[in-house]
Design a protein around this nucleic acid. Structure first.
Lengths: 208, 208
DNA sequence: GCGTATCGGTACGAGGACGTATCGATGAGC
DNA sequence: GCTCATCGATACGTCCTCGTACCGATACGC
């Protein structure tokens, strides 16, 4: 929670007497994730990452055995909860803010998810890292949001739509590029939430 | 519409005096699409397709210049409208049947969409073929479904959720594997439609 | 039936990526 | 200040894939 990375004990720079500072490590991770977003997982090369960070392939292979392990480490280091801190006291407003927050990282994370979507079927560690980094935290945060709304009595606990709200929110994020060729920005998501999520939950104006 | 394929004049077997029958051509197309689903676009090799269909690489390259063009041809030949023929006279029932229909091909088409999702950013022809084959027909059929409902007065023409229904339906298809590790089957989709789509449109029991 | 184009099989060259090994230089630890 | 592990750079071997070229065999058009 400090301004430094709280990567944990498995961080490369912390585990060995490496000359790679945490900042340097983050450069590697940022570079590989960016290249994955742009070129896809298969097309990313260790040589390319090394070149873009002006390090050598040896350095990368010294720290991480293989390319999937390297990418998995980058994903785990990139773990963040974008919905964290959203707690306005109103479920409808929480969902609106979540939509706007999601819109801001929509492009980056959607690209990552898309680019890794098929690679994860071959590498289990990669799949787990992806879920830990991009999927589970957001789902959990969203479900907490909903749970708070239920606790406040804004939505009945047995509302049949409750379990589908994450699928709605993340589904539209994921499918927008396919349907209309552009990523779901904050405005689009906000309109989507207003037009579908809130009415489904019965949170239209007057009841939320 | 006959029992034979109505591929159109651009079909390989029709355009030249080729020994490749339409059935043989379809074997090639089925093989490459299946390999794409299983291994991803990047990992599919012309050699693999040739081996699995017991033809030679030369044969494939004689008919299609490059791998992307081959895949694009396979996609176009695979074009079908899964929602075709659904017209029960009730929008709610149409959507229920659409959900069940979608569940049946959910795995195959979702895999294909996922596997090709990043390749299309590099090859425009591939992107267009994918949209023509998998995206546009289904969207159009769904929108006709909705338009019929509007024409029958079941939903107001300016209902704010109307434009998001395709995103909801296809979004959940696309995101389910990421969220819960399994494809959206007919039952799941049916429950999703019941719990979210129909209430959003105001088509709960009594008004539909 | 004959000619010919296409078939399937295979060998080939080019290019690229993974992962390893080697080498001088540099910076941390004592 | 000395030692030594790690750094960056590069070359290398291996493997794979694309796309082409060549081969005898086969089946279609006439």
């Amino acid at each position: 929670m400090t301004s430094q990375d709280a990567d944990g004990p498995e961080s490369v720079a912390a585990s060995r007497r490496s000359k790679i500072t945490p900042e340097r490590e983050r450069e590697f991770f940022d570079a590989v994730l960016e290249q994955i977003r742009e070129c896809g997982y298969e097309s990313v090369t260790m040589e390319g990452v090394a070149a873009s960070t002006r390090c050598s392939k040896s350095t990368l292979y010294r720290q991480w055995k293989t390319k999937p392990q390297f990418v998995a480490a980058a994903l785990r280091a990139n773990r963040r909860v974008r919905f964290a801190g959203i707690d306005t006291g109103s479920l409808a407003e929480d969902l609106r803010q979540a939509a706007r927050a999601a819109g801001d990282w929509s492009g980056k994370d959607t690209k990552l998810l898309q680019a890794l979507g098929h690679a994860v079927t071959a590498d289990h560690e990669l799949a787990q890292a992806l879920r830990e980094a991009l999927v589970h935290p957001e789902i959990a945060a969203l479900q907490e949001m909903l749970a708070r709304g239920v606790a406040r009595g804004e939505v009945r606990a047995d509302h049949p739509a409750l379990e589908y709200i994450p699928a709605m929110m993340f589904g539209v994020l994921r499918v927008r590029p396919v349907l209309s060729g552009q990523y779901a920005d904050a405005d689009y998501l906000a309109r989507f939430v207003e037009a579908t999520v809130l009415p489904t939950l019965g949170l239209t104006q007057g009841s939320g």
